Each structure stands twice: as structure tokens, then as C-alpha cells.
Computed example of a mutant assay.
Amino acid sequence: MELMNVGKLMYLMDKYDIKPKKRMGQNFLIDNNIIQKIIREADVNGANVVEIGPGIGSLTVGLAQVAKKVIAIELDKKLIPALEETVGQYPNVEIINEDALSVDFDAIMKERGIEEEYSIVANLPYYITTPIIMYLLESGFKVDKLIFMIQKEVAARMVAKPATKDYGALTLGVQYHTEVSQVAKIPPTVFIPKPKVDSAVIKLVKRTKPLVDVKDERFLFQIIKAGFGKRRKTLLNSLSNSPLGLTREAITEACLISDISPQKRMEELSLQEIANLAVHLA
């Protein structure tokens, strides 16, 4: 596989006067071993893939050599000329200058005659990680898997287990929709410029159906938000003081029916236990 080297990256940055923008979380990946690892995990040979935030195109080049079609969505107009030069020899790459948080991914694919499921790959800026992941999962796009390089601490929250410090609303939102695993740890030294934190590569495989069966998904996540909004308080206190209008009597009764102590905290419950509780609170 022919990939970009550091010299080419630095040449393009100099040629197009590119200075990574801290406010946009721009850190360009320069380690080809990690790039190949991401591509292997994405498993997009002959498939369609969307890359969010391609930057100058170090990962895009690798994806272009194995995928059927690569849609590269880049917000920063300043990077587009360098990205075009990087992927110019690959006719299966299309660059779109848009904000991924406002893109209808299914519509983009359909406009190009792509009706089947597709994958999403990204080296996500840290400031946008949670919003973009939840947007992609909650919008119901025809995505089969997502491979993201993100801040290590955020990755830990996504794979966390109950009764741990990293377990929270993000954990449950991600695990409700996907089977998630951490596939690599990434040091700051593989980026230009070096971030101040370690990173990780996570793989999210979309479930054929959600992890738990509930009639009112919206209410389930309202309960989760309320419980983790005051995570050190008991279920009885956190839920009764939430905007949901639940009485202490109703919460106590629902907890007892669900075989859950109202003195427990939300962080101690599995998603299935929370789902049971939500059913009896509805």
C-alpha cells in the first residue's frame, strides 16, 4: 500500500501555508502503521466509506486503495487544495466541503446511487467527538460500522462497565446502538502537531436491534440523563429532583417492582436494569 510520508505532509503544509488550527482540533496523523491498522479494522475492501475530517489526506490515500468509493467530508476550506492534490490520482475519492454535524449522510450516498450500508472512518477532533458520534447513531443512518480515532479518555467511557468511574450516559448511548471495542492505543508522537493527550482507535459495529427492548426510547434516555446528571445521588434523589416530574413514591414503587434498591446510584445499574426501571416509571 502506497501511503503518505512525513516529508510529503510537510511539503503540502508549506506549499499551501497550512497551520493546524487548535480551535478545530487539527492534528494530522503521520504514522503509516496506525493508518494500516485503521484500514484493516474498517474492513472496507470493495465497500463504500465516508471519511470525516480527512485533513490533508494521509488516511484518505489508504482508504482509496481498498474501498469502492470514498466520500471525504472536510469542514476547513483551507485544507481542500492540499487534499485535492493528495488524492488527485484516485477517481474513487470525492471531496465535500461541509460540516459533518449538518450532513444527511444517507442523502449524500443516495445522490450517488449508493443504497446499501456504508462505513464511516474518522480521526475526530476531540471537541466534536461526542456530538458527532451520537448524531450518527441517533439519526438512523444506514451505517454498518464506525472506526474512530478519539481521545483515550473518551474511548474509556464508551467501553466502560457499570460501577466504574468512566461509566455514564455516553457509555449507554453508544452501547445501546453498537457493539463497541477499543482496537488500538495511540501516543501523541504520531501526530503533527502533537496533542497533549493520548488517543485510541475504537470500532463501533451497529447492532441489528438495540441492546435492550423498550417501547419509549426517548423516555429511557431521559431517565439516563436525569440519573447521571446527579451521578453521586441515589436513584430516589436524582430522579425525584429531575425535570421529569416523578414523585418519590412512584420512583420507590418502580424500583421495588424492578428489584432495584432506590438507594442505588444510576452508575451501578446495567442498561437492562435501567430499561426495566424506565418501563415501570412510564
Rank of each mutant, 00 (worst) to 15 (best):
E2W: 06
L3T: 07
M13P: 12
M13E: 06
Y16F: 15
K21N: 12
K21Q: 14
K22D: 02
M24Y: 15
I34N: 09
I35V: 15
I39S: 09
G53Q: 10
S58N: 15
G62N: 08
Q65S: 15
A67W: 09
A72F: 04
A72V: 01
I73H: 00
L75S: 09
K77H: 15
I80D: 05
L83C: 09
E84Y: 04
E85Q: 14
G88R: 04
G88S: 11
N97H: 12
V103T: 07
D104E: 11
D104I: 13
F105A: 06
I108V: 15
K110D: 13
Y118A: 07
S119D: 06
S119C: 07
I120C: 05
Y126S: 09
T130V: 13
I132L: 13
I133V: 15
L136W: 05
L136N: 04
L137H: 03
V143N: 10
V143R: 11
D144V: 03
I147C: 08
F148G: 05
M149K: 05
A155S: 15
R157M: 11
M158G: 10
V159Q: 01
K161N: 14
K161L: 14
T164M: 06
D166A: 14
Y167C: 11
L170V: 12
Q175I: 00
E179R: 14
V190N: 12
I192C: 06
V197Q: 06
D198T: 09
S199F: 04
I202A: 05
K206Q: 04
D216R: 00
R218F: 12
F221E: 00
A226F: 02
G227R: 01
F228S: 04
T234W: 03
L236Y: 13
N237G: 06
L239R: 04
L239M: 08
L244S: 07
E249V: 02
E249W: 05
L256C: 06
E268N: 12
I274H: 00
V279A: 00
V279G: 00
L281D: 02
A282F: 03
